[in-house]
């Protein structure tokens, strides 16, 4: 089964003569459980592809199936519902500053009506323990280091057992050593749990965590290389 299936996907910004096409007739398949890394220069359309897969933007042309849901012509409700089954990791941690680490992680569980508070907190704590932050559960983001914050973000992206994890330049705000450690942790947790991961990155030092690397240039996938 494939987590992501893209056929003939095109996307452009604006309309008329000034329209800018950023994705050209793209095909991409990501099998479940695989860790795929997307590289490419700035402006190549990587981020647009990520936002389309993440159901954050409406699909214009072509087919984009994510976790079995066709996003072409999908309405906002469908996209919101799908986003709940995806874990997002951002360039900057984007943690809620007024919540503790545990509360931040539990935010990913508050949309599930079947869970009670105790279960949410237990799972959030277990997840924080898995990313090595068992002693920081009650800390606010302001007192955590950059690497610790990104690990909380990883815990938040994984705790609700998403079918797909999307990460956008997750090491951009970290030094190279911390960046690699954090991504190795993500790889370990994803493999342990059989999660599918799609990472957009410039950072060549984290290529070793990927099962497959895809490169992009001018809105097209180039030299698909198996790692």
């Amino acid at each position: 089964m494939n987590a992501v299936e893209i056929r003939g996907l095109s996307h452009r910004y604006g309309a008329g003569p000034t329209a800018l096409t950023v994705l050209h007739d793209l095909d991409l398949t990501i099998p479940a459980g695989e860790i795929v890394l997307l590289t490419g220069p700035s402006g190549s359309g990587k981020t647009t592809l990520l936002t389309l897969i993440g159901a954050l933007r409406a699909v214009q042309t072509g087919s984009c199936r994510v976790l079995g849901i066709e996003l072409s012509k999908a309405d906002e409700r469908t996209r919101v519902a799908l986003r709940r089954r995806i874990g997002f990791i951002f360039q900057h941690h984007n943690l809620l500053s007024f919540l503790t680490a545990r509360e931040n992680v539990a935010m990913a569980l508050e949309l599930d009506p079947d869970l009670d508070e105790a279960e949410r907190l237990t799972r959030a704590e277990a997840m924080l323990q898995a990313v090595g932050l068992a002693d920081k559960v009650d800390a606010y983001p302001a007192v955590l280091s950059g690497g610790q914050r990104q690990r909380v973000a990883i815990a938040r992206a994984l705790v609700h057992e998403p079918g797909l994890i999307l990460a956008d330049e997750p090491t951009a705000a970290l030094d190279s050593k911390t960046g690699h450690e954090t991504m190795a942790l993500l790889q370990h947790l994803a493999k342990e749990r059989g999660r599918t991961v799609f990472i957009v990155t410039h950072d060549p030092r984290i290529h070793d965590i990927a099962d497959r690397i895809v490169a992009m240039e001018d809105g097209q996938l180039v030299q698909p290389a198996t790692h």
């Binding site: 919101v80 809620l96 500053s97 949309l111």
Partner: peptide
């Protein structure tokens, strides 16, 4: 001031 945080919540599936 918390626009980024609200956007993050929306990305996570908050309506």
């Amino acid at each position: 001031r918390h626009l980024g945080e609200y956007a993050t919540l929306k990305a996570m599936g908050y309506t």
